[in-house]
Write a protein that binds this DNA or RNA. Structure first.
Length: 283
DNA sequence: CTCCAGGCGCCTT
DNA sequence: AAGGCGCATGGA
């Protein structure tokens, strides 16, 4: 193995985090998790004291992985900001250690453009096909399965809609293609969003074809670290309705306002707990 | 078979 | 502003 590192961290449930629908490329193998972060093949293994990381090639610095895993965050302090109501308490008690990762904006944006009205298993499938078809091969350790980088915007921009549809993404193909071309032609800059306030960054993302409020919120939360961004999908809408407004029917607009005022400065993290809770534990 | 999925865009009221 | 509908594809 070319390089290993150990991240000492508490309150971290690696399995729940990598399997919670914020990322789509990790697979579990013999108690470890194999995935791709940037251009690196990575194997992660959790024990009592933290997370061991292995790469296929030597690495000079581990900042990229520390940033991705967000191991430096005082997670207990984040949990303390959640509202103390019954649904939130149950969700935290059940999923304690669930974290929010810090992803690459392009991969996150493209992934969630492909996510609309798809089940998570299918999103994984589409992205796997996309990476096989258009991603550069990545060096892996001996005897490990081949893997591919997430395709760059340039690579997608040069594809055809037919080629993308071959990855089973259906009507999402023209959306992904249009966005990749806008980025490649420098008509849209993902890096510029970092310095904008949340509302403005959200507005910018929503100018993109195939990107509405929900997908924008996912990208803001999972890639840019806007912790108050609160994606409302069908699961969360149902959860909020059942858990917080069981008597009366609340409109989507009302639910969004409730979410923005009720869950605090790390509302997006709270959202991830509710999402994982209802999706895995209440069914 | 039907229903629905980490939605969005566009068209009606 | 709010609600309805079509869209590709494939689990359940």
């Amino acid at each position: 193995m070319a390089a290993t590192e150990f991240f000492c961290v508490r309150d971290y449930d690696l399995a729940a985090t990598l399997d919670s629908g914020q990322v789509f490329r990790w697979r579990e193998q013999n108690g470890s998790w194999i995935g791709i972060v940037g251009k690196n093949w990575v194997r992660l293994t959790q024990n009592q004291n933290g997370i061991r990381a292995e790469t296929a090639v030597p690495v000079k610095s581990w900042i990229w992985l520390r940033d991705y895993l967000q191991t430096e965050i005082d997670w207990d302090a984040v949990l303390k900001t959640f509202p103390e109501d019954a649904p939130m308490r149950d969700a935290v008690a059940t999923c304690r250690g669930l974290r929010v990762l810090r992803q690459d904006p392009w991969e996150c944006l493209a992934s969630f453009i492909l996510s609309s009205t798809k089940q998570i298993v299918q999103i994984r499938q589409i992205i796997a096909l996309l990476c096989e078809q258009f991603g550069d091969p990545i060096l892996v350790p001996p005897n490990e399965s081949p893997v591919f980088a997430f395709p760059t915007p340039e690579k997608i921009a040069r594809a055809t809609e037919t080629g993308l549809r071959a990855c089973k993404m259906g009507f999402r193909a023209p959306h992904l293609l249009a966005v990749a071309r806008q980025i490649t032609e420098e008509k849209f800059n993902l890096e510029n969003l970092r310095q904008l306030p949340l509302a403005e960054a959200r507005g910018e993302l929503m100018k993109l074809r195939g990107v509405g409020g929900k997908i924008a919120d996912c990208v803001l939360l999972f890639a840019y670290g806007f912790d108050s961004a609160f994606p409302v999908d069908v699961w969360i809408e149902r959860a909020l309705q059942q858990l917080y407004f069981p008597r009366r029917r609340a409109s989507e607009k009302h639910l969004r306002h409730f979410a923005a005022t009720h869950f605090g400065p790390h509302a997006g993290c709270a959202q991830q707990y509710l999402f994982h809770y209802i999706r895995t534990k209440l069914n």
